[in-house]
Design a protein around this nucleic acid. Structure first.
Lengths: 243, 243
DNA sequence: ACGAGTATACTTGTATACAAGTAGTATTAT
DNA sequence: ATAATACTACTTGTATACAAGTATACTCGT
């Protein structure tokens, strides 16, 4: 593989990850960012050569990506499905679905502990903005929703989250990197919406929750545009690098 | 492994399955049926020896079961989580959640094709009852719901289904085997409920859909009892066989 | 008797080897 | 020229080998 190759996924998030997980994270980023185009056929041998590892971790990674609907494992090779606008809307469908469910469960119990945790994450996000750390911001953003979802200890809801989280994370990561330094309006809107989430859970107010969920949902279109632009730019950068 | 060992999962459903898938299906059945108790630690080497295969397909199977929340992959060994009453309720939560979502999507389009397919499956179920074929009945029952869910072509909803289906299938399979020849009342109730599903989709009537979903949900408690009894009986049979 | 350290028998993660099957191409026979 | 066949270069699935790390038990020193 080209020595000048850079990894898209933050290496510091992979401290205790196995080779298979690393490959999965990197491939995921490359697929979602568009560096690996939809329709491409990936072969285990080629990937193994490319990443200088054996087929074992590659196989593991492909299984993971297949579970996340990013590739289709076929008889000869793995076909990249990728993320179109449709898939992104669908993944947000699922998040809306499970977060609504979670909220209904959540308000039946004491929410003080969750609210405290969410507030902490909220403040972390503010720090990330202050230091213009897009990756950290994305991480905390995902963690925010994960905290809400895991708080009800529902094994199958958690399972759904575990399967959608990686795609979500990569998507948000790319989107944030793209516009973190430009769109301050976006950031303040995101922060306000997260505040709304906390309020909704704190006050157990269904109206506010629906409002914040929809707000989040409305943001998707913007994020899709971000992704598209991100894909364009990365492709260009890639082409230039190859020359 | 004991030569008298019998496989719980129908072999005819595994015609084109790889060794890994076979092992996954069999282990899943043994975990859900209670033959492998919760808390047990499974080792790749022992399983490989037990099933006379190498570690590769065993690893694959364990990854699958881990995704289904049936085991927890830890540093040393895979700890069996199993299916308690809580997990079963939770898996039905998810089915209720996604089938509700699917229904809302479904009624926006023409449902004639789906209704036709469902009617076919319904008639297959009747034949299965006629010939007292519990396994076939379970297969068609699962297929019924799969047909509904896949009909909207929503990749992430399909993903959720793919992750819950195997557990669902095993659970229903065991439940049906247990009581297929006794509880005709149950069967007719199940059939009536499936008829209700078809009606709801055909007439696009939300009221009926909610009714059938809840009916289905109310059945769960009975099924949990079935599972518990099934686990007891299988354990006893196993103990006797060992002597 | 009891605690520290070591030996051992396990565990997983990764690399490699082999077998079976498939697509596509080249070659050969008609 | 064309169709059929054989060959080549791939593919995945499974088995095996090796490395690194961990828990248990045992031995040795006090």
């Amino acid at each position: 593989m080209n020595d000048s190759m850079e990894f898209l996924y933050p290496e510091k998030w992979l401290s205790k990850a196995s080779t298979g997980e690393r490959v999965a994270c990197e491939l995921r980023m490359r697929i979602i960012s568009g560096l690996i185009e939809s329709g491409t056929t990936l072969s285990e041998n080629k990937l193994a050569a490319e990443y200088n590892v054996s087929r074992s971790p590659i196989r593991e990674a492909l299984k993971v990506l297949s579970n996340e609907n990013l590739i289709r494992l076929e008889r000869m090779g793995a076909v990249v499905v990728g993320l179109t606008e449709k898939e992104i809307e669908e993944i947000y469908d699922v998040r809306l679905l499970i977060e609504t469910f979670v909220f209904e469960r959540l308000v039946k119990n004491d929410t003080a502990h969750v609210v405290k945790e969410l507030t902490k994450i909220f403040e972390m996000m503010q720090i990330a903005i202050k230091y213009k750390d897009a990756d950290e911001f994305a991480l905390q953003d995902v963690l925010f929703h994960e905290t809400i979802i895991r708080s009800i200890n529902h094994s199958y809801i958690t399972m759904i989250w575990n399967n959608t989280k990686p795609v979500m994370e990569s998507f948000i990561l790319l989107s944030m990197r793209m516009h973190f330094n430009e769109k301050y309006d976006d950031l303040s809107r995101i922060m306000k919406n997260h505040e709304l989430y906390i309020d909704a859970i704190s006050s157990k107010n269904r109206e506010i929750m629906i409002q914040s969920l929809h707000q989040n949902f409305d943001d998707v279109q913007g994020k899709v545009d971000d992704l598209w632009m991100s894909q364009q730019m990365l492709s260009k950068a890639w082409e230039q690098e190859k020359e």
